[in-house]
Design a protein around this nucleic acid. Structure first.
Lengths: 113, 113
DNA sequence: AGATATTGTTGCTTTTAGGTTACACATATG
DNA sequence: CATATGTGTAACCTAAAAGCAACAATATCT
């Protein structure tokens, strides 16, 4: 269910690395790698993500996106349909659009699960 | 010394907000805001940064960059239609949509300064 | 003036990220 | 066979993030 964990695990296995080997390359503990893969971490620090990205030879931005810290990297920009009910967006500036997107991300981050 | 802290403090004062008021808007503790401003945090989580960015009406990417998590503020790619720039809205609840609309209205009300 | 609210600040406590060690099950290698 | 060596997993420990409560100083109001 956890996007970040499944993504890392998939890439790790794809490269034929064990949890311990990946941890060694990233210079973090192997237990931490496992916890992240298992989705036991609610907050994985960007520092750790950077290390793992380097060890996996995978774009750092991809991990940041999988962790929900930044928006998906460029490729699919026209991702989704706008939810019905959001209006008056026609004359928004680019900066304002960014702020609206940030706000949406903020709302989702505030959801109680 | 601390780029993130000084940036946040500067913006907060610029908007005439107290530490407690900013914390209230961001829905985090006021002590945490102070610690971040004072540079007492070696790792500020992206979730907290996102909340503060929203409360300060400041680009989230700026805080991420100030925290050293990304290199440069991500310049938005192809703007396309304005509505297409707003994304990840598929599974928003009605209440959340209302909040987004309120926020858009708020942004527009802030335009003149 | 005095009462009250607001601000910045500082212990204290809880929660969580992250590490160290140890265990059980493999797969090699002598 | 034995005995290393590698692998995933789980219990325990600590350091750091984040919240709570209380404080002293300042501002605001009657």
């Amino acid at each position: 269910m956890n996007e970040l964990g499944t993504y890392i695990k998939e890439k790790r296995i794809e490269k034929g690395l064990s949890i311990r080997r990946l941890a060694e390359l990233a210079d973090i503990s192997h237990t931490e790698v496992k916890r992240i893969e298992d989705g036991l971490r609610k907050q994985t620090s960007p520092q750790v993500l950077r290390s793992i990205a380097y060890a996996l030879s995978v774009p750092y931005e991809d991990l940041m996106a999988a962790a929900g810290y930044i928006d998906e990297p460029a490729t699919e920009l026209d991702s989704g349909t706008i939810a019905a009910g959001i209006k008056d967006t026609e004359d928004l500036s680019q900066e304002e659009i960014d702020q609206v997107n940030q706000y949406i991300a903020f709302l989702k981050s505030q959801r109680k699960n």
